[in-house]
Amino acid sequence: MLVMNDIKKVFRTDLVETHALRDFNLQVDEGDFVAVTGPSGSGKTTFLNIAGLLETFEGGQYLLDGQDVSQLNDKARSQLRNEKIGFIFQSFNLIPDLDLFDNVDVPLRYRGFNAAERKRRIESALEMVGLANRMKHLPAQLSGGQQQRVAIARALAGEPRFLLADEPTGNLDTKMAHSVMELLKEINQAGTTIVMVTHDPSLARDAKRNIYVRDGKVSELHSVGQELPDAANA
């Protein structure tokens, strides 16, 4: 479970203060699939970064699996990230100098699994995304959709409880986007909680639950099937 109460996040530069999140409240339950929409600059990425322990916050309370994370040091945060959270990025973020096997291996090594265990997990994760036969390929040799599948395999190989995705289909064409979405739905069905930022309402509709962020706040909640406000397409 992921609970945020009145989270505040301010970006300060010499000239301006940006209130990226103001009193952000959200509860994501076990097994949920939440699609987050909202205009550009509304704070979606900031929310996801805080949820994924990539960024700290100024006020409020964040409980990840019941644990208050605000006081943790870098090492503990990194470990928590590694064990409980899988990340998927808009531009895939595969490491260009590593083949698919080594890419999926990255989080597993930080986890400290032994070689046999890592190999087993890498193979089954790549199997799941249909790329087991391309383990020795470099990311550049794959299409965007395939790269994102590798990224999903990498995110899931450690069997995290949460999968956080920031516009995972943003760089893909419609067909590939939908096939990635199908994959995410399967993963969710298998028990992984997913929070996905997207600007594609048709994909958002496929999620179990939609939230809409504006001006750093969760302004409206929608159940599946309801129409999204126009601003979601911004």
Binding site: L54, K75, S78, Q79, R81, P107, Y110
Partner: peptide, 16 residues
């Protein structure tokens, strides 16, 4: 830089 950020996101500590 981006690769390093990604590694951090995937669980690398600063020490790593």
């Amino acid at each position: 830089r981006k690769q390093i950020g990604t590694r951090r996101a995937l669980g690398a500590s600063q020490g790593a």
